[in-house]
Design a protein around this nucleic acid. Structure first.
Lengths: 93, 93
DNA sequence: ACGCGGCACTTTCATTTTGGAAGTATGACC
DNA sequence: GGTCATACTTCCAAAATGAAAGTGCCGCGT
Protein backbone atom coordinates (compact mmCIF):
# COMPACT_ATOMS: atom_id res chain seq x y z
CA UNK A 1 0.00 0.00 0.00
CA UNK A 2 1.43 3.30 -1.06
CA UNK A 3 1.98 6.11 1.39
CA UNK A 4 -0.62 8.21 -0.33
CA UNK A 5 -3.15 5.40 0.11
CA UNK A 6 -2.20 5.11 3.78
CA UNK A 7 -2.77 8.83 4.28
CA UNK A 8 -6.10 8.67 2.48
CA UNK A 9 -7.15 5.81 4.71
CA UNK A 10 -7.09 8.31 7.57
CA UNK A 11 -8.05 11.67 6.09
CA UNK A 12 -9.79 10.33 3.00
CA UNK A 13 -13.32 9.85 4.41
CA UNK A 14 -15.71 12.72 3.86
CA UNK A 15 -15.45 15.60 6.35
CA UNK A 16 -12.19 14.39 7.87
CA UNK A 17 -9.96 17.06 6.38
CA UNK A 18 -12.55 19.77 6.98
CA UNK A 19 -12.61 18.89 10.66
CA UNK A 20 -8.82 19.12 10.81
CA UNK A 21 -8.96 22.47 9.00
CA UNK A 22 -11.32 23.85 11.64
CA UNK A 23 -9.06 22.66 14.42
CA UNK A 24 -6.05 24.40 12.90
CA UNK A 25 -7.52 27.57 14.41
CA UNK A 26 -7.32 26.02 17.86
CA UNK A 27 -9.32 23.56 19.97
CA UNK A 28 -13.06 23.52 19.41
CA UNK A 29 -16.01 21.97 21.14
CA UNK A 30 -18.31 19.41 19.57
CA UNK A 31 -21.23 21.76 19.09
CA UNK A 32 -19.07 24.46 17.55
CA UNK A 33 -17.59 22.04 15.04
CA UNK A 34 -21.02 20.85 14.08
CA UNK A 35 -22.39 24.33 13.55
CA UNK A 36 -19.34 25.64 11.72
CA UNK A 37 -19.13 22.66 9.39
CA UNK A 38 -22.85 22.13 8.94
CA UNK A 39 -22.56 18.38 9.12
CA UNK A 40 -24.74 15.78 10.82
CA UNK A 41 -23.94 14.95 14.41
CA UNK A 42 -23.65 11.22 13.81
CA UNK A 43 -20.98 11.68 11.15
CA UNK A 44 -19.11 14.15 13.32
CA UNK A 45 -19.01 11.72 16.22
CA UNK A 46 -17.81 8.93 13.94
CA UNK A 47 -15.07 11.03 12.35
CA UNK A 48 -13.84 12.34 15.68
CA UNK A 49 -13.57 8.80 16.98
CA UNK A 50 -11.61 7.69 13.90
CA UNK A 51 -9.31 10.71 13.93
CA UNK A 52 -8.64 10.26 17.61
CA UNK A 53 -7.83 6.57 17.06
CA UNK A 54 -5.48 7.59 14.26
CA UNK A 55 -3.64 9.99 16.55
CA UNK A 56 -4.66 13.09 14.64
CA UNK A 57 -6.55 14.71 17.50
CA UNK A 58 -7.35 14.19 21.18
CA UNK A 59 -10.07 15.06 23.66
CA UNK A 60 -9.32 17.91 25.99
CA UNK A 61 -11.59 17.86 29.07
CA UNK A 62 -13.17 21.17 30.04
CA UNK A 63 -15.58 22.00 32.87
CA UNK A 64 -18.41 19.57 33.77
CA UNK A 65 -19.51 17.40 30.88
CA UNK A 66 -17.92 19.46 28.11
CA UNK A 67 -14.66 18.86 26.29
CA UNK A 68 -12.75 20.29 23.37
CA UNK A 69 -11.05 18.58 20.46
CA UNK A 70 -7.48 19.58 19.69
CA UNK A 71 -4.92 18.52 17.09
CA UNK A 72 -1.90 16.44 18.06
CA UNK A 73 1.47 17.15 16.47
CA UNK A 74 0.53 14.61 13.86
CA UNK A 75 -2.67 16.50 13.19
CA UNK A 76 -0.89 19.83 13.00
CA UNK A 77 1.42 18.27 10.41
CA UNK A 78 -1.53 18.22 8.03
CA UNK A 79 -1.36 22.01 7.71
CA UNK A 80 0.88 21.85 4.63
CA UNK A 81 -1.41 19.42 2.89
CA UNK A 82 -4.46 21.54 3.67
CA UNK A 83 -2.79 24.74 2.51
CA UNK A 84 -1.78 23.03 -0.74
CA UNK A 85 -5.27 21.68 -1.40
CA UNK A 86 -6.88 24.98 -0.47
CA UNK A 87 -4.60 26.76 -2.90
CA UNK A 88 -5.47 24.29 -5.61
CA UNK A 89 -9.19 24.68 -4.98
CA UNK A 90 -8.87 28.45 -5.16
CA UNK A 91 -7.46 28.19 -8.66
CA UNK A 92 -10.54 26.58 -10.22
CA UNK A 93 -12.31 29.85 -11.02
CA UNK B 1 -18.27 26.88 0.47
CA UNK B 2 -14.67 27.03 1.49
CA UNK B 3 -11.90 26.49 -1.00
CA UNK B 4 -10.88 23.30 0.74
CA UNK B 5 -14.40 21.99 0.37
CA UNK B 6 -14.39 22.94 -3.31
CA UNK B 7 -11.15 21.03 -3.85
CA UNK B 8 -12.48 18.01 -1.98
CA UNK B 9 -15.57 18.06 -4.17
CA UNK B 10 -13.28 17.15 -7.06
CA UNK B 11 -10.48 15.05 -5.60
CA UNK B 12 -12.32 13.95 -2.47
CA UNK B 13 -14.09 10.84 -3.81
CA UNK B 14 -12.29 7.57 -3.26
CA UNK B 15 -9.53 6.72 -5.78
CA UNK B 16 -9.50 10.18 -7.35
CA UNK B 17 -6.16 11.29 -5.91
CA UNK B 18 -4.62 7.87 -6.50
CA UNK B 19 -5.53 8.10 -10.17
CA UNK B 20 -3.91 11.52 -10.40
CA UNK B 21 -0.83 10.18 -8.64
CA UNK B 22 -0.46 7.45 -11.25
CA UNK B 23 -0.79 9.96 -14.05
CA UNK B 24 1.96 12.13 -12.60
CA UNK B 25 4.33 9.58 -14.14
CA UNK B 26 2.92 10.28 -17.57
CA UNK B 27 -0.15 9.29 -19.61
CA UNK B 28 -1.55 5.84 -18.97
CA UNK B 29 -4.11 3.63 -20.62
CA UNK B 30 -7.30 2.45 -18.97
CA UNK B 31 -6.17 -1.14 -18.46
CA UNK B 32 -2.84 -0.08 -17.01
CA UNK B 33 -4.49 2.22 -14.50
CA UNK B 34 -6.85 -0.51 -13.45
CA UNK B 35 -4.12 -3.07 -12.94
CA UNK B 36 -1.73 -0.68 -11.19
CA UNK B 37 -4.38 0.66 -8.83
CA UNK B 38 -6.24 -2.62 -8.30
CA UNK B 39 -9.61 -0.95 -8.44
CA UNK B 40 -12.86 -2.05 -10.05
CA UNK B 41 -13.41 -1.06 -13.64
CA UNK B 42 -16.76 0.59 -13.04
CA UNK B 43 -15.32 2.95 -10.43
CA UNK B 44 -12.37 3.76 -12.65
CA UNK B 45 -14.64 4.69 -15.53
CA UNK B 46 -16.76 6.87 -13.25
CA UNK B 47 -13.77 8.67 -11.75
CA UNK B 48 -12.14 9.27 -15.11
CA UNK B 49 -15.36 10.83 -16.37
CA UNK B 50 -15.61 13.08 -13.32
CA UNK B 51 -11.97 14.12 -13.41
CA UNK B 52 -12.21 14.84 -17.11
CA UNK B 53 -15.32 16.96 -16.53
CA UNK B 54 -13.47 18.82 -13.78
CA UNK B 55 -10.60 19.62 -16.14
CA UNK B 56 -8.06 17.56 -14.24
CA UNK B 57 -7.31 15.16 -17.09
CA UNK B 58 -8.16 14.55 -20.75
CA UNK B 59 -8.39 11.66 -23.18
CA UNK B 60 -5.52 11.27 -25.55
CA UNK B 61 -6.45 9.11 -28.58
CA UNK B 62 -3.97 6.41 -29.58
CA UNK B 63 -4.16 3.81 -32.36
CA UNK B 64 -7.45 2.05 -33.14
CA UNK B 65 -9.76 1.80 -30.18
CA UNK B 66 -7.22 2.61 -27.48
CA UNK B 67 -6.58 5.91 -25.73
CA UNK B 68 -4.50 7.24 -22.89
CA UNK B 69 -5.40 9.52 -20.00
CA UNK B 70 -3.15 12.48 -19.31
CA UNK B 71 -3.15 15.29 -16.75
CA UNK B 72 -4.00 18.83 -17.75
CA UNK B 73 -2.08 21.73 -16.23
CA UNK B 74 -4.72 21.84 -13.58
CA UNK B 75 -4.15 18.16 -12.86
CA UNK B 76 -0.38 18.60 -12.73
CA UNK B 77 -0.93 21.36 -10.17
CA UNK B 78 -2.02 18.66 -7.74
CA UNK B 79 1.55 17.43 -7.46
CA UNK B 80 2.28 19.61 -4.43
CA UNK B 81 -0.79 18.39 -2.61
CA UNK B 82 0.05 14.77 -3.37
CA UNK B 83 3.66 15.16 -2.26
CA UNK B 84 2.49 16.76 0.99
CA UNK B 85 -0.04 14.02 1.72
CA UNK B 86 2.42 11.30 0.79
CA UNK B 87 4.96 12.79 3.15
CA UNK B 88 2.39 12.93 5.92
CA UNK B 89 1.38 9.33 5.33
CA UNK B 90 4.99 8.23 5.46
CA UNK B 91 5.32 9.65 8.95
CA UNK B 92 2.69 7.40 10.53
CA UNK B 93 5.21 4.72 11.53
C1' DA C 1 -15.08 -13.85 -44.79
C1' DC C 2 -15.04 -15.52 -40.14
C1' DG C 3 -13.74 -16.28 -35.69
C1' DC C 4 -10.42 -15.04 -31.84
C1' DG C 5 -8.44 -12.00 -28.63
C1' DG C 6 -7.38 -7.54 -26.55
C1' DC C 7 -9.10 -3.24 -25.00
C1' DA C 8 -12.43 -0.02 -23.11
C1' DC C 9 -15.94 0.29 -21.11
C1' DT C 10 -21.36 -0.71 -19.19
C1' DT C 11 -24.70 -3.13 -16.46
C1' DT C 12 -26.43 -5.42 -12.55
C1' DC C 13 -26.75 -6.20 -7.92
C1' DA C 14 -24.81 -6.64 -3.01
C1' DT C 15 -22.38 -4.06 0.52
C1' DT C 16 -20.70 -0.03 2.71
C1' DT C 17 -20.85 4.75 3.64
C1' DT C 18 -23.25 8.86 4.33
C1' DG C 19 -27.11 11.76 5.82
C1' DG C 20 -31.37 13.35 8.51
C1' DA C 21 -34.14 13.18 12.44
C1' DA C 22 -35.17 11.95 16.78
C1' DG C 23 -33.81 10.01 21.16
C1' DT C 24 -30.63 9.31 25.39
C1' DA C 25 -27.23 10.60 29.13
C1' DT C 26 -25.03 13.74 32.24
C1' DG C 27 -24.47 17.54 35.04
C1' DA C 28 -25.20 22.49 36.19
C1' DC C 29 -28.54 25.77 37.68
C1' DC C 30 -32.97 27.63 39.50
C1' DG D 1 -37.64 18.34 41.12
C1' DG D 2 -37.66 20.45 36.63
C1' DT D 3 -35.36 22.87 32.89
C1' DC D 4 -31.55 23.72 29.98
C1' DA D 5 -27.12 23.01 27.59
C1' DT D 6 -23.84 19.85 25.82
C1' DA D 7 -22.42 15.60 23.84
C1' DC D 8 -23.41 12.21 21.92
C1' DT D 9 -26.31 7.46 20.13
C1' DT D 10 -29.88 5.10 17.46
C1' DC D 11 -32.71 4.24 13.68
C1' DC D 12 -33.68 4.30 9.09
C1' DA D 13 -33.39 6.06 4.11
C1' DA D 14 -30.37 7.45 0.37
C1' DA D 15 -26.16 7.53 -2.01
C1' DA D 16 -21.52 5.83 -2.97
C1' DT D 17 -18.61 1.91 -3.59
C1' DG D 18 -17.31 -2.75 -5.05
C1' DA D 19 -17.32 -7.47 -7.48
C1' DA D 20 -18.66 -9.96 -11.45
C1' DA D 21 -20.28 -10.56 -15.72
C1' DG D 22 -21.63 -8.70 -20.14
C1' DT D 23 -21.24 -5.51 -24.45
C1' DG D 24 -19.11 -3.29 -28.52
C1' DC D 25 -15.25 -2.24 -31.33
C1' DC D 26 -11.41 -3.09 -33.97
C1' DG D 27 -7.24 -5.67 -35.81
C1' DC D 28 -5.16 -10.04 -36.83
C1' DG D 29 -4.62 -14.66 -38.36
C1' DT D 30 -6.49 -18.34 -41.32
Amino acid sequence: MSELAAALGIVGPRWALLIVEQLLDGPQRYGDLQRDLGMGTNMLATRLRELEAAGVLYRLPLRHNTRAYALTDRGLALRETIVALRGWGAGST
